[in-house]
Structure formats: C-alpha cells, structure tokens
Simulated scan of single mutants.
Amino acid sequence: MGGLDIVIANAGIIQVGPAEALGAEGFQDAMDSVFNGALNTSLAALPHLRRSPAGGRLVLIGSVGGLLAVPHLLPYSCAKSAVAALADGLHAEEAPHGVSVTAVHPGLMRTGSHLHAFFGGDRRREYGWFSAVAGAPLLSMNAERAADRIVTALQRRRPRLVLTPAARLGATAHGLAPVTTTRLVSAAARVLPRDGSRTTVRGSAVEAGEQPPAPRLRAVLGALNERAADRFNQR
C-alpha cells in the first residue's frame, strides 16, 4: 500500500536441556534466530516506520525467560534477554521519530511449541517435563487471547507487556528480590535431568520414537497444549 505502519518480530527457536548439552552452538543458534532476527527486522523496518503518517509501531516478542533466566532454557533466555534490551533501547531512541516500540514478554503459551523445540541431554526426560509444563492449566495462556492482548498493546503504544499472571509475578519478584528468586530457581533446577550428553533432537522425533516419562501426568497437564498443536497445524 506504499508504506509500512506496523512490524512484529516473532521468529525464534527453543532449545531445552543443560547448557553443557546444548553447547556454544546452541547459544549461537538462539542468538541468530531470536536476537538477530529481531535486530535485523528492526533495522530494516525503522526507516519505513518513521515515514508512516500515523506513526510507526514496532513490536518485539521477548519472553519472561529474558527477564528471569530459566534453567535448561539458557540459550533461549539469553537471546530473549538481548531482545528485551533492544526493545527498551529502541523505544527511547525512536520516540523522537514518532515510532513506538513495544516489548512483549509472554510466559508459557499454548502453541504446540514442544513439538518443534530441540532437546539435548536426557532428551526423553527433558521432553517430558517441558511438554507437560508448557501447556499446564493456570500457568499457560491461550494463544489467541495472547495475540489479542498484543494487538491492544500495539494500538495503545505500550512500552511493555508481560503476559500471564505467573510471568508477571516471576518478573516482579526477580526485580524486587533477585537473590531470593535466584535461590528458588536454583532449588527447582535440582529436580531437572542432569545428563550433559551432546545430542539434540526435535520434540516431534522424541514423541514419535521414545515414550516420555509419566505419560498420564503429561496427558493431564499437556492436554490443552496438545489441542493447540492440532489447532495450529503443528503436527
């Protein structure tokens, strides 16, 4: 239509496992897709957004994992933390040009992401806990509802949106008491698998080839996420 008014950068990958199992390559892959994807999209779009008659709007999708580091999701957390800094900095720099920049930090989203995440170390157990928690009732959020909230934040030019009550609680607690939250997260990490072997596979391959642990518990906690995977054609 001869111009660019709205840009949303949402590309990314998720790797699940201990840092030693994912290796430096895992961190580089996360930075390449999550951070560089947001960075390159922003730099390419900003000249056009500045010329928007209505004032351009840029939305960068971060994560609560970028506000509070999550064990066994460290490449993802590091890349999303960089996105958070980029969004906050661009919000300040672009304000004089009439461009608003909104940082969106979702918590757990029901999108079927467990099927496309990459799992390292004890991939069977890593897939088991992630696929259950990712769609757990009360902790996770419906993707359509999240999209509606993001559009509203974009329309209102909000500088930041944190989605799900659990994510807001975690981000606020870490901001007020970082030492305490770090200790609590460290305690939670003790129950996660400790296998550091360097083998990474996609979640759909684990689902098809290896029976994850606690199938009944996963069936209950992950039922909503499984329905989302079907609805969004993630199989």
Rank of each mutant, 00 (worst) to 15 (best):
L192T: 10
L154E: 13
A92M: 08
S186M: 07
V162S: 08
P47S: 14
T152R: 14
V185L: 02
F27M: 10
L67A: 08
A166M: 09
L22H: 04
S100D: 04
R156A: 13
V7M: 08
A166E: 06
A171M: 03
G170I: 00
I13Q: 11
P47G: 15
H114R: 09
E20N: 06
H91E: 10
A79D: 04
L74K: 06
R194C: 04
L184K: 11
G107Q: 05
E226M: 04
L108D: 06
L60F: 11
P137V: 07
A87V: 12
A69F: 01
G98N: 13
A166I: 11
D230A: 13
Q155S: 11
L49E: 02
R194V: 03
Y76K: 00
G175A: 06
G89A: 13
K80G: 05
R51I: 04
S131C: 12
E207R: 15
P71H: 07
E226F: 10
M1W: 00
P18H: 00
A84D: 12
L163V: 15
L86S: 02
Q28H: 09
A189L: 01
A146F: 01
V59G: 02
A24W: 10
P215I: 10
R57V: 11
S81K: 02
G37C: 12
H91A: 14
V99P: 05
A21M: 12
G128M: 05
A208M: 08
C78K: 03
A167E: 05
G26D: 09
L22G: 05
P96I: 05
A38C: 15
V133D: 01
G37Q: 09
T182W: 03
A11P: 06
T182F: 00
R57D: 03
I8M: 05
N10C: 15
P193T: 09
R216A: 09
E207A: 13
R168V: 08
V185Y: 01
N142Q: 09
L217F: 15
P106H: 08
G23M: 01
V34I: 15
V179G: 06
P215G: 07
V206G: 08
L73K: 05
L163C: 04
A45Y: 07
V70N: 03
Y127I: 08
R124A: 14
F232N: 02
H105C: 15
T181D: 00
A132H: 03
L138Q: 08
P213D: 09
S100W: 01
R110M: 14
M1V: 08
R160S: 12
L221W: 11
N36H: 15
G107W: 02
L22W: 08
E25C: 00
S204T: 13
Y127E: 07
A214M: 12
V101I: 13
T111A: 13
M1H: 10
H105L: 13
V70D: 00
L73F: 12
A134E: 04
S140G: 04
R50Y: 03
R158Q: 12
S42W: 11
G135E: 05
G56N: 09
R157Q: 12
E207P: 09
G2N: 14
K80C: 01
D5W: 10
A146E: 07
W129D: 06
